[in-house]
Amino acid sequence: MTEHQPVTLYSGPITCLERDCDEYFTDNGEDANVDCCSHVTTEQACRECSTELPDETFDPAVPWPCPHPA
């Protein structure tokens, strides 16, 4: 049996998810050392109860904390 564990899901424009947004870079073009730009949102889901698709997205995503008993 697999444990119920949280997984972070990211959503936003594809350019932002691929780190091609201007916010990932300084004015000099160097890495700005940020985890996500302001266009990306995150949410926690239960890895065990959510369905992972071949493209590594989850649909449907069961929110974390998981409502199902362990």
Rank of each mutant, 00 (worst) to 15 (best):
E18D: 04
P67F: 02
N28P: 00
G12P: 04
A61K: 15
T41K: 04
V40N: 11
E43V: 04
C46Q: 12
E52K: 11
P60Q: 07
E18P: 00
M1P: 12
L17A: 04
D59P: 01
H68C: 07
L17N: 08
L53N: 12
V40T: 15
C49S: 10
T2K: 03
T51N: 02
S11G: 01
A32Q: 11
F58R: 03
R47M: 03
S38D: 09
E18N: 15
D22G: 01
I14P: 02
D22H: 09
S50E: 14
C49E: 10
P6W: 05
Y24F: 14
P69K: 02
V62H: 06
M1E: 04
T51G: 00
S50I: 11
V40P: 05
V40A: 03
D22P: 08
T26V: 06
Q44M: 07
T41N: 04
T57V: 09
L17V: 07
T41R: 04
L53V: 06
E48D: 12
V34I: 15
C16R: 10
E48L: 14
T8C: 11
D22M: 05
R19Y: 07
T42V: 08
P67M: 06
P63V: 11
T42M: 11
H39K: 06
A45I: 09
D31W: 13
D22K: 07
C37Q: 12
R47Y: 05
H4I: 07
D31C: 04
T8R: 14
P63H: 14
T57C: 08
A61V: 14
E18G: 00
D59H: 12
S38K: 11
V7E: 14
E48R: 15
L53I: 05
G12A: 02
N28W: 06
N28Q: 12
E56D: 03
T42S: 08
Q44T: 04
H4N: 04
Q44S: 08
P54D: 13
S38Q: 13
E43P: 00
E52N: 00
E18H: 13
